Simulated assay, not measured.
Amino acid sequence: MTLDAETASRFGASRKTLGGMFVNMATNPKLRSFRSGRIIGAVAAGLIVLLIGGNAFSTVEYGHVGLYKTFGKLNDNVLSPGIHFKLPFIQTIIQVNTQVTKAETDTSASSKDLQPVSTHVAVNYSVNKESAYNLMNNIGGNFDSVIINPAIQEIVKEVTARYPAEDLITRRDVVAGEISDHLKNRLAKYDLIVNDINIVNFKFSEAFNDSIEAKQVAQQQALKAENDLKRIEIEAKQKVAQAQAEAQSLKLKKQEVTPELVQLKQIEVQEKALDKWDGKLPSVTGGATPFIDLNSLAGK
């Protein structure tokens, strides 16, 4: 393919013109500044879009519920776990834990018999999902220190004062049940659910612990003595029963002995002696000669 002279001349002029424009753009400071400004503006716009888009959504975690907060004011619309839209830089979503949570408290009180008692209590509680707005709007996020711990302190002291110190140990399940009932009624006013309560430990004074130990030792010794006495009584009764049985047996045997039976036994003894006798009298006798009643034998 060939170009004529006029076309070639025009093409060359165009090339020179474009080249000059590019040279002017590259060497002209105003053109360079304009191009840089447009690039920076595009980057800034992209960052703003990303920032706004990133703040337009929020996630409510599993085991929680969410509440909209617009310029510091809570919305009573309770959000379930998942992704939710919010107005960027205007709204935030606060999360309320609705899972079972444990609160532990140490309480000092006095028993009914004025023994000092330190109690360590663990309470498992949860937030009512439907009433999360009321709780957060009226109490706030620190409801555990504002409501739960003071309630536990007061109720444990109140219930502990109704029982003697020993009953607190032996009837721990009853004491825990009474504390649980009172605490459920108290926290229900704030839409809090008491799931379980455990009295982890009762701690008494050293003097009381020593007295309890001494009492247990005395009870064990008394129990041992009582068991020994019962054993002796049983053995004595056994001996009496055995003697009575032997006497009864002897009595029955005496009733069975008759003169005819005695005579028969005598005859049996004499027959055995006669069977063993060889018909010779002993030449030397050192004692009495056995008497044999020949008449009785002959009569038999």
Score class of each variant (00 low, 15 high):
236 A>Y: 09
147 I>P: 00
63 G>C: 01
213 E>N: 06
43 V>F: 03
78 V>W: 07
98 T>V: 14
216 Q>W: 01
116 P>W: 12
187 L>F: 06
89 F>A: 02
235 E>H: 00
279 G>E: 01
172 R>N: 08
266 Q>E: 13
267 I>P: 04
70 T>R: 02
16 K>Q: 09
168 L>G: 02
163 Y>V: 00
173 D>P: 09
46 G>K: 10
38 R>F: 05
92 T>H: 09
19 G>Q: 13
41 G>P: 09
7 T>N: 14
82 G>Q: 07
2 T>P: 14
164 P>I: 14
197 I>G: 01
275 D>H: 11
138 N>V: 13
118 S>C: 09
68 Y>K: 01
32 R>G: 01
203 K>S: 11
259 P>R: 03
64 H>L: 11
193 I>K: 03
62 Y>T: 15
172 R>S: 10
85 F>W: 06
60 V>A: 05
92 T>E: 12
248 Q>E: 14
182 H>I: 09
62 Y>F: 14
272 K>R: 04
87 L>S: 07
196 D>M: 01
11 F>D: 08
253 K>Q: 14
65 V>T: 07
263 Q>R: 09
230 K>H: 07
95 Q>R: 04
185 N>G: 02
252 L>M: 12
87 L>C: 06
52 I>V: 15
88 P>K: 05
214 A>V: 10
67 L>H: 03
75 N>V: 01
267 I>V: 08
113 D>V: 12
207 A>Q: 14
191 D>V: 05
297 L>H: 06
240 V>R: 05
2 T>H: 14
11 F>S: 08
160 T>L: 04
129 K>D: 07
124 N>P: 00
206 E>H: 03
77 N>E: 13
29 P>Q: 01
82 G>W: 02
264 L>N: 14
33 S>I: 02
166 E>Y: 04
3 L>M: 12
278 D>E: 05
10 R>L: 14
139 I>V: 15
293 D>G: 03
233 E>D: 08
174 V>I: 10
229 L>R: 13
110 S>D: 15
253 K>Y: 10
280 K>S: 10
30 K>R: 11
192 L>K: 01
182 H>T: 04
78 V>E: 09
110 S>R: 14
183 L>C: 01
211 S>Y: 08
210 D>G: 05
13 A>M: 13
